[in-house]
């Protein structure tokens, strides 16, 4: 088992395997997006209080979920890279950051656009909104810390520490609506209950799976390039780059 993991995680092996599995993420992403859009914009009913504006939820909530999910992946991968010094783990952590930041930004902006007509304000400094904004700053800090070092190995060490410390913000974001009085409402999707209409729930699930696959496609593509840069002194990278082997 351990040998198998090591073999897969070897940079060269991953470089070729990743290329093969990209379509396995790309096509489900496209399919889920199309079906998800149909469900979100056409099939699902308007809300009894919010009318059609509830449709903003189908991009807002999946984006917010992704912002948390990617951060956890990034911090765990960073931790694995720190402890076991697996190069691939560091690469996954580094390429995840800008994608996570993009989803966090999307969650914040769509939240504001939804909040304006419903709550009556674009922004409030309540616990949920503030902790999500801190998440965006954590991603940005992680990215700039990574760029501050010339040596990617040193950079990964420093930024992984930041990512792991920042992990405490994740439960704070998730439970903020329960721990404190906030303007933001509580979670509709729990382990034991779903307090929304089934067609709304399906739309939400379709788009959130679409986003998961999108993340898969993007980290596979970006990890391949990051690996080339980090392994640029090994012979196989030179072969890939100079002989045009598998380099599309």
């Amino acid at each position: 088992m351990w040998k198998w993991i090591q073999a897969f995680a070897s940079p060269q092996n991953f470089y070729y395997t990743a290329k093969k599995i990209i379509p396995w993420f790309l096509y489900p992403f496209i399919a889920l997006t199309l079906v998800g859009l149909y469900w979100a914009l056409i099939k699902s009913p308007p809300d009894y209080q919010q009318g059609d504006s509830v449709r903003i939820m189908y991009v807002h909530v999946p984006a917010a979920w992704m912002s948390l999910f990617i951060y956890v992946v990034m911090a765990v991968a960073g931790g694995i890279g720190l402890i076991w010094q697996i190069k691939l783990a560091n690469v996954v952590a580094v390429v995840s950051a800008p994608i996570g930041a993009a989803f966090t930004f999307l969650a914040l902006v769509t939240g504001a656009v939804w909040g304006k007509p419903m709550w009556g304000t674009w922004w409030v400094w309540d616990a949920r909104l503030t902790s999500e904004l801190i998440l965006l700053f954590l991603y940005l800090a992680y990215m700039s810390l990574n760029n501050a070092f010339d040596n990617p190995k040193t950079a990964s060490k420093a930024s992984s520490v930041l990512a792991i410390v920042g992990l405490v913000n994740i439960p704070i974001i998730y439970y903020s609506v329960e721990w404190w009085n906030s303007l933001h409402q509580g979670s509709s999707i729990g382990v034991t209950k779903v307090s929304m209409h089934i067609d709304m729930f399906i739309a939400l699930l379709l788009i959130s799976f679409a986003f998961k696959f999108l993340y898969g496609v993007l980290i596979l593509m970006r990890a391949r390039d990051e690996l080339l840069v980090r392994e640029q002194n090994s012979r196989w990278v030179k072969a890939v780059v100079m002989e045009g082997k598998n380099n599309d």
């Binding site: 859009l37 914009l41 059609d52 504006s53 903003i56 991009v59 999307l106 656009v113 007509p117």
Partner: peptide
């Protein structure tokens, strides 16, 4: 959509 049409389209186009 009802009066929220711009908010909705803005969100999806931004996404």
């Amino acid at each position: 959509f009802d009066k929220y049409v711009y908010y909705i389209w803005f969100s999806y186009l931004l996404t």
